[in-house]
Design a protein around this nucleic acid. Structure first.
Lengths: 223, 223
DNA sequence: ATCTGTGTTATTGTATACAATTATACAAGT
DNA sequence: ACTTGTATAATTGTATACAATAACACAGAT
């Protein structure tokens, strides 16, 4: 995130090379930079990122665990996320993200609510400006915040992982200005339901929101 | 698995130390051997498993990715799976495992079906003998097979991960002989629905099966 | 007594050397 | 032509040495 948004304390956190390499490779895969089937040797990645094989290997283990790569005797093979996976991801999110929203309604604090509304305001602002990357980042922030608030590590990790995996496609989706505007409105409605502590409504609105997002993405594929 | 069950080819697969250490630690955590909050230094794990820190660290990265441990500056802290997580896991499985079964009905082959029935036969056998570990292993095998057959990496990885995490509690559950017998019957019914290619029925039976398993486990907690 | 600074120790993070494994090319035999 | 064996090279797997970082204990000042 940017300077003003992510700073809660002035702490300077040490980030290992292994961790940053992991994040860079993950992002490259999820944003479609590497093609499915492409292979890299550890040495190649090592010189590509300018670090030794040790942190590369640690990053590889994490990517392996996320099913984004496959380790073979010839190197690391990119698996990535196929268009076919997208439908499954939306199917699952459609069934459980509403529940997460319902959980939120019962326990959300006024500070959480304020933060959530600020995120939507920002998303609104970026949508009017047409800044796609920023729109997607605030969109991510909204959903991640819901996952975080809902108070369940299980829901949070499952949903976060699924939402994360469709990075590339969400960016495509949001380039449709009509859909981008609609998404802001839907996020606002979810906020209002949470503010009213109406779990059933938050559930219903979230399910509908995900269904709409799914339809929009699938339209992109058929065009 | 045992010698006779897992052998499809005579291949002797090389398994790295990192991989086997990962599996051993994961199993130790999931079976409740290590308590939540317990910490280990890498050196301690290193001498515990008789290997250098390198494979230990690679195993740690994978466990970290599974949210089973947390790496701190003082060592590796065990997070494990809390009883509170169990309800969430069943809630999610209850919503999506039925869908996976439905997918299976459309594409299952007769070989798959035969294997699945063999698993249930074995589970039946072990249930009559009262061999808890074996019962749980065949129970795992049944569900993992469904995940594998359904033809979706997304469903498979999400469900497999969730199912895997409740290892300890499933063992407890199955020690109730009445529940163990019931589980065999329910598995058979799911098999029959799949054999008849009845997706709706397979869905409904699977959802009910998970609901029953959940109720049984929750009973264990309240007693 | 409490806070603060500093040296020490313990621990994780990284690089590198070496071992083990697997793939590949090529030759020889059938 | 095709298989089979073998040497070679490429790659992953592991151990170890060292660097960076963070925790800790303790002395000294206020």
């Amino acid at each position: 995130m940017s300077i003003e948004s992510g700073v809660n304390s002035g702490d300077i956190k040490f980030v290992s090379l292994a961790e940053s390499v992991f994040e860079r490779i993950e992002n490259d895969i999820l944003s479609g930079k590497y093609k499915k089937g492409e292979t890299f040797t550890e040495s190649r990645l090592s010189e590509l990122f300018g670090v030794s094989r040790t942190p590369i290997r640690e990053a590889i283990r994490k990517l392996e665990q996320e099913n984004l790569i496959k380790v073979t005797t010839k190197g690391v093979e990119i698996l990535g996320v196929s268009p076919g996976d997208i439908e499954d991801i939306y199917e699952i999110r459609g069934r459980i993200e509403g529940l997460a929203a319902k959980k939120c309604a019962g326990i959300i604090t006024s500070e959480d609510l304020k933060k959530l509304e600020e995120i939507v305001d920002l998303q609104d602002f970026y949508t009017q400006k047409g800044l796609h990357e920023k729109i997607r980042d605030t969109d991510s922030a909204f959903h991640e915040m819901i996952y975080s608030i809902c108070g369940s590590n299980v829901y949070s990790s499952v949903l976060s992982n699924l939402h994360h995996r469709i990075l590339k496609y969400r960016k495509m989706s949001i380039q449709n200005p009509e859909r981008a505007r609609r998404a802001v409105i839907e996020h606002r409605e979810i906020c209002e339901a949470l503010a009213a502590r109406d779990g059933e409504l938050a559930d219903k609105l979230t399910v509908q929101h995900i269904c709409n997002a799914r339809d929009n993405i699938m339209r992109n594929f058929s065009e």
